[in-house]
Every structure is written in structure tokens, then in C-alpha cells.
Design a protein around this nucleic acid. Structure first.
Length: 430
RNA sequence: GUGGUCGUAGCUCAGUUGGUUAGAGCACCAGGUUGUGGCCCUGGAGGUCGGGGGUUCGAGUCCCCUCGGCCACCCCA
């Protein structure tokens, strides 16, 4: 086995029954955002590399050192998507649908980084984007939908942190004053940031190190630097959240990793996960992105949720369990397999979940398989039933949890083979 | 990219100061029950001890290299 292949580093397989959780998760998301008018967008998993470089910013960590970039056979520079938003906005820019355009997606996202707990080279995200309006109520709708989804999967305690990053009018001035402050006070920062802060000054605000936290308490804050329009917008977002009773924490230091964010930004974190990976989702407004990708001015807002992180948080709170997956009927054939082949086919045709054993195994082995399948009924056909044109329909008792020696319940009956499907349907109905 | 840590059966792990054909539990398969699942009993299959090199009469055990997993930092979901 030593030379058996394995999944590439940082990737993982989701096998059943775990994958059934993913199915129900996506279905629940689709239903929630569908009710709010969001439609599914399926776009290519890779794009012209510049879509991401211009979107999330060539200087950001994700773009500068984590992109899965490659050249195809036609010498085009392409990249696997590192996040969901840029692709959706590229699709908007290309097709110019009527706005407000409300889209949702579920997609893998690729980032080349060293794998660790809850951090993958391929992870998966669910998200929505609402493109074509700067109405603060749209921010409120987007955030409220995310909050509703967390509640739906049983995460009662996720924390929402909220900030405004300003706009093209007010942000540059703030960045300048922050830069000046850092030049004067770098010595007080944590060892990491006292050396290298100039690449992305905003990051320093988000540092969790105590030295940085203490020092930057005196640093300029974005919320004091917002222009009148941004200030008003932010206030109306908060009012809207209040009116919907969506709880949030003002987080003046919150800085997200992508350059495209303007005005509203937010993150959701789960207190039941370790701090290094407790971010279960986030998003914000990106009023300049459509233009940056060559399209019309189209203010927009959206969020993304990491599926792996979300499920991890659910595990920590024993919520959103793997759904039960049981067969209805298991067909046991001791006469060579023809009955099993034809009867499972007929049963499935009639809408019944039906399975069978292969390889002509013993009755005992087939009964064990029936038990494992969770089937409520077993249909048993041996030589004598076959000769009489009959079949045994047996009620399978559910596995008992503790009692070691379960009492046998021989609830089974002999049915004409023509009537098996009908009888099975009848028994399943009760 | 930097650092730490761990690699023995499908899974979880034992394996004495280096010493015969490397073990257990769970899972799997078969039989006990000549046609009835779970519980029980008996048996079976399954390992080049991650790989390579070295030390030694002898290496799962000691040394070196390498690959892989996990975790942390940076950053993120």
C-alpha cells in the first residue's frame, strides 16, 4: 500500500455519510436565499489571473503568495479561484443583467498555503452577492440572511463584528494619517509589525498581539475618518440591523484581507472554535469592483461562508448532525440473483429505496447486509418461495442501542410474488 | 515560506535496556444455527513497522537523509 495515491496535500475527500450533511447544508442555503430572490450562478473555477489580482488586490497575501496560477497551452495566464466574489462580479460585468442582481454560489476555493487545522488548499464556500445598489438596506438584507443561516444550522452563538472601511473619498486620507502614526510609533508594536507594517498598514489594526492592541488603541480610527456619506451609510446599516434584531459588535479595527472592500465590512466567528480558525464567514460592500473589472459602476455587497469551518463549529456544538440515511427494502435472493435484480429494479421504479447483496452470499451474510443498510423491510426469496411463486416480506427490527440480546421478532409474512411491490408499498406507508 | 511534532493492520493503539515466525480492540469475512440480521462463541484474512541508507552477530526499537500526516506562525474560510 505504500505507493497508493492519496489526495494532494491540503485537500480532503468528503465521503458519505458525512457528504449527506453537505447536501442538506447546500439545500438549506439554496432555499433560504432563494426565498429572498437570489439565484444560483455557476461560473468557471478558473479565470484570467487578472480578475483576481485586480479584485482582491495584487498586494494582498492571497493574491501575492497563495494563488494557484498557471499558464494554459495557449499561453494564457489563468488562476484557480481563491474566493467567490470576483468571479461572480466578472460574470455580472460580462452579461450586464438588470440590477439589482442577486446571485448565490457554492464553490471550491483554492489557496496555496501550508495546511493546518481547518485550513485547506481547497476549501468550499457558500455565498451571495447583491450587485447594483448602494442602499444600506441591501447590506442589512445580506447580513441578516447570513445570520439567519447560522441560526438555521444551530449555531446560536456566532459573533458578528461590523466595521466600515470608508470609500474612495475618505479612505486615502485615513490611510495617510495611519501611515504617519505608524512611522512615529512603530517601536511600540509587536516584534512582527514593528519591522514590517508598510506593506499593508491596515493589517496592524487587526493584529491580535497584546503589544499591537495596546499601542494601536491610540492610533487613528477609520470610524472617525469617514466622510459624511459613508458615516450616514454606516449608521443606516446599524439601524437596519437593530430593527431586525440582528446582534453585532462594532469592530473599528476589523480589516479584511481583500482590497476590494469599501464601506460595510463584517465577519462572523464562532466562539466554540479555536481563535486561529474561528472565522466562519464574512463579507462586505465592494462598490468599486465591477468598474475595476471593466464594467459599469455597480455598487454591491455580499458574503461568503466556509463550509468546512461551519461544519466544524456545528460539531463543536453538536448541531446539524449527519442526516439518517436508510434503505426502505433490502432484497435477499438465494436462487442465483435474478429475483434480486428484477425486484430491486421494480421497487426503485415504484419510488422505493431498495438495495440488495451481490456475489451470491449466504443467507446470513445477506441478512447482515440488510441490517446494515437500515432497511425497514427485507424481501426474502429462496428456492422454496420461488417454486411456490411467493416471497417472504420481513419486518426488520431497528438495532437496539444497549440490550445485547435482542428478542427475536419474527414478524414476517408470505406474499405472492406478483403482489410483493404492492404489499411493500402498503407496509412502508404505515 | 519558517518552526514544532508524529509515522506499527482499514481505524484506535501496545510493542520491555536492540533479541525467535510483530500483537490487541474495533471493523471485515467464514462457521457455530443443514433458511433468517443485531448479542455471544470459534476461526480466518489483512503489515516489505512511511521510504532509503548506516551502526550491529541481530533494528519496529539507535543514527543520518528523505517523504508524508498533524499542529503553530504569517494570512485567511
Amino acid at each position: 500500500m505504500r505507493d497508493a495515491f492519496r489526495a494532494p496535500s491540503g485537500t480532503h475527500d468528503v465521503l458519505f455519510p458525512e457528504s449527506a450533511r453537505w447536501e442538506t447544508l447546500v439545500a438549506a442555503f439554496s432555499s433560504l436565499v432563494g426565498r429572498a430572490g437570489y439565484g444560483l450562478v455557476i461560473s468557471p473555477m478558473f479565470e484570467d489571473e487578472r480578475v483576481f489580482l485586480r479584485g482582491i488586490g495584487a498586494g494582498s497575501d492571497v493574491a501575492s503568495k497563495e494563488m494557484y496560477s498557471f499558464e494554459d497551452r495557449g499561453a494564457r495566464r489563468l488562476a484557480l479561484r481563491p474566493e467567490g466574489t470576483a468571479s461572480v462580479v466578472r460574470a455580472f460585468v460580462q452579461h450586464r443583467p438588470a440590477s439589482v442582481w442577486k446571485a448565490w454560489y457554492v464553490t471550491p476555493a483554492f489557496r496555496y498555503e501550508r495546511p493546518q487545522a481547518a485550513r485547506y488548499r481547497q476549501h468550499h464556500q457558500l455565498g451571495i452577492e447583491a450587485i447594483g445598489s448602494e442602499d444600506p438596506d441591501l447590506d442589512v438584507e445580506v447580513i441578516a440572511l447570513a445570520a439567519q443561516f447560522y441560526r438555521h444550522v444551530g449555531l446560536e452563538s456566532v459573533e458578528l463584528r461590523l466595521n466600515s472601511m470608508g470609500c474612495a473619498q475618505c479612505r486615502p486620507g485615513f490611510e495617510r494619517s495611519l501611515f504617519e502614526w505608524l512611522e512615529a510609533n512603530a517601536a511600540q508594536l509587536c516584534p512582527e509589525h514593528s519591522q514590517r507594517w508598510s506593506a499593508n498598514p491596515l493589517r496592524v489594526l487587526d493584529c491580535k498581539n497584546e503589544l499591537c492592541l495596546g499601542a494601536t488603541a491610540q492610533a487613528p480610527q477609520i470610524c472617525d475618518a469617514l466622510c459624511t456619506d459613508c458615516d450616514r451609510h454606516f449608521a443606516r446599516v446599524k439601524e437596519g440591523l437593530d430593527s431586525l434584531r440582528v446582534a453585532y459588535l462594532s469592530a473599528p479595527r476589523l480589516v479584511r484581507g481583500f482590497d476590494y472592500y469599501t464601506r460595510t465590512t463584517f465577519e462572523f466567528s464562532s466562539p466554540s472554535l479555536a481563535a486561529a480558525q474561528n472565522g466562519v464567514g464574512g463579507g462586505g460592500r465592494y462598490d468599486g469592483l465591477a468598474e475595476a473589472l471593466g464594467g459599469p459602476a455597480a455598487p454591491a455587497v455580499g458574503f461568503g461562508i466556509g463550509i468546512e469551518r461551519l461544519l466544524l463549529a456545528c460539531d463543536a456544538q453538536d448541531s446539524f448532525p449527519v442526516p439518517e440515511d436508510r434503505m426502505d427494502v433490502f432484497v435477499i435472493d438465494l436462487t442465483g440473483g435474478r429475483v434480486a435484480r428484477e425486484l430491486t429494479h421494480e421497487l426503485r421504479n415504484a419510488g422505493v429505496r431498495a438495495d440488495r447483496a451481490f456475489d451470491e452470499r449466504s443467507l446470513k451474510a445477506q441478512m447482515r447486509a440488510a441490517d446494515r443498510s437500515g432497511a425497514k423491510l427485507a424481501v426474502i426469496v429462496g428456492p422454496s418461495e420461488q417454486e411456490a411463486g411467493k416471497a417472504v416480506v420481513r419486518q426488520m427490527m431497528p438495532r437496539l442501542r444497549e440490550e445485547s440480546d435482542a428478542r427475536r421478532d419474527d414478524a414476517q409474512e408470505l406474499v405472492d410474488s406478483d403482489a410483493v411491490v404492492e404489499r411493500v408499498l402498503e407496509m412502508l406507508r404505515r
